[in-house]
């Protein structure tokens, strides 16, 4: 009797393993369909929602993938989370926008180097009739102070992203701690936050790329822009494999990717990328024009 029970368990374990192997095979079958010999290497990149959702990466990455015979796997999340993914050793390279945090990341040895790739800027958009009267203000911090004074509805990213950190810096400049019914934290990506702000006819701080990509679906109007404080710089950082012993991190490929992003070829592509005729990201490493 006992022996037969053992038999039954063996059958069960065998079936489980066969099924597992089947599932694994399914995963492996994908790269095998690529025309080139050998499966392409995979480079995992954590980046911000603004670079993926504007379509920039779809436009840019195929050129690199062809060159290096690899597949860039894009994970879009806020800057804070992307930096953490690098610190945790879950990705090979990060492309984010928070210069202070990026410099710290490299100084602590989590990244091998930091290359500045491109920039755009932030702007404050809000209801066209502008109840708080911030339109045309020169300084973004002044505009936020006016919003706080008027208790005008404002939607914050609230997700520790680069944009959220910039907004918090601006409040801090004025010594304001925003709170109250008028201050709403979305806790989501830029697109979602813009849609929420639009639904609630609220003010919101956004990066220009996402705003331009989504502009047609919004009723909100640009109100404050051009403040040097609103400059938005993107950097690429390969994750340092030496900090993650025993974890396979593809630093070599990540460094190649960073070099390529700063190369004239990629810089030119970035400068040529347009949505509705507008340039969303300006190349930085080399002048494209």
């Amino acid at each position: 009797m006992r022996f037969k029970l053992v038999n039954a368990m063996a059958v069960f374990v065998f079936a489980a393993m066969a099924l597992l192997a089947g599932c694994q095979g399914k995963d492996r079958a994908k790269p095998a369909r690529e025309p080139k010999a050998g499966p392409p290497a995979a480079l995992k990149m954590a980046t911000t929602t603004s670079t993926e959702n504007t379509g920039l990466l779809d436009y840019l990455l195929p050129a690199f993938e062809k060159k290096c015979h690899c597949k860039v796997q894009v994970l879009s999340m806020g800057t804070g989370k992307a930096l953490k993914a690098g610190r945790d050793g879950n990705v090979d390279v990060i492309l984010v926008h928070d210069k202070g945090a990026e410099l710290e990341f490299v100084a602590q040895g989590w990244g091998t180097e930091r290359r500045e790739i491109m920039y755009n800027d932030f702007l404050i958009i809000g209801p066209d009739r502008d109840p708080a009267g911030v339109r045309g203000m020169n300084l973004a911090a002044d505009a936020l102070a006016a919003l706080a004074a008027a208790q005008a509805p404002f939607v914050s990213r609230g997700d520790d992203s680069g944009t959220h950190r910039k907004e918090l810096d601006l409040w801090k400049n004025k010594g304001i701690e925003p709170s109250g019914d008028w201050y709403m934290e979305a806790g989501q990506g830029m697109e979602d936050t813009l849609r929420i702000a639009d639904q609630k006819t609220a003010y919101v701080l956004t990066d220009r790329g996402t705003y331009l990509a989504l502009r047609k679906k919004l009723t909100l109007a640009p109100l404050v822009e051009g403040d040097p404080e609103l400059f938005n710089l993107y950097g690429v950082i390969p994750v340092n494999a030496a900090k993650h012993p025993g974890v396979k991190i593809n630093t070599d490929l990540a460094v190649k990717f960073a070099d390529w992003m700063a190369s004239p070829e990629a810089q030119k592509l970035i400068g040529n990328f347009k949505v509705d005729g507008e340039v969303l990201f300006h190349p930085l490493a080399v002048d494209s024009e």
């Binding site: 599932c23 995963d27 995992k44 994970l75 945790d88 050793g89 990705v91």
Partner: peptide
């Protein structure tokens, strides 16, 4: 599944598995 977690060495985070 995170890289330094108990099953991290299999690198299964952010994969179909």
């Amino acid at each position: 599944l995170t890289a330094h977690g108990p099953l991290g060495s299999f690198r299964l985070l952010y994969t179909p598995a």
